[in-house]
Amino acid sequence: MSLHFCSLSLTALPLLASTVSQEETPEVWDWRAAIEHVLPEPSETAWMGLPWEPSLRAGLVAGRQQSKPVLLWAMNGHPLAST
C-alpha cells in the first residue's frame, strides 16, 4: 500500500513525503506540522478547562464535600476520552 500525500491539499501542512510505503518509510517528513494540524486549537478545548470529575462517583463525593449539586455529563463513550 502506498500513500500519495502529494495528491492532497497540503499548502497548510507541508508534509515532505511524496510517497510512503512500508518498505521505504522516509526518515524525513514534517511530523511536527502533522502534530500541529491534529492537536486542537485552544478555542476547540474550552470545555476541557472546566473542572470535570472523571466519574459519577467522584462527582458525588465532591458534591457532598462542597455542598453543591452535581451535573453529570453521561455519553456513549467517556466524554473526556473517546465519544
Binding site: 452535581v70 455519553m75 467517556h78
Partner: peptide
Amino acid sequence: KLASFVLAADEVWSL
C-alpha cells in the same frame, strides 16, 4: 451557571 455545580463526566453504557 455551571459554577454552582460540581461537574462530572462518565461513560453511560457502563452506568
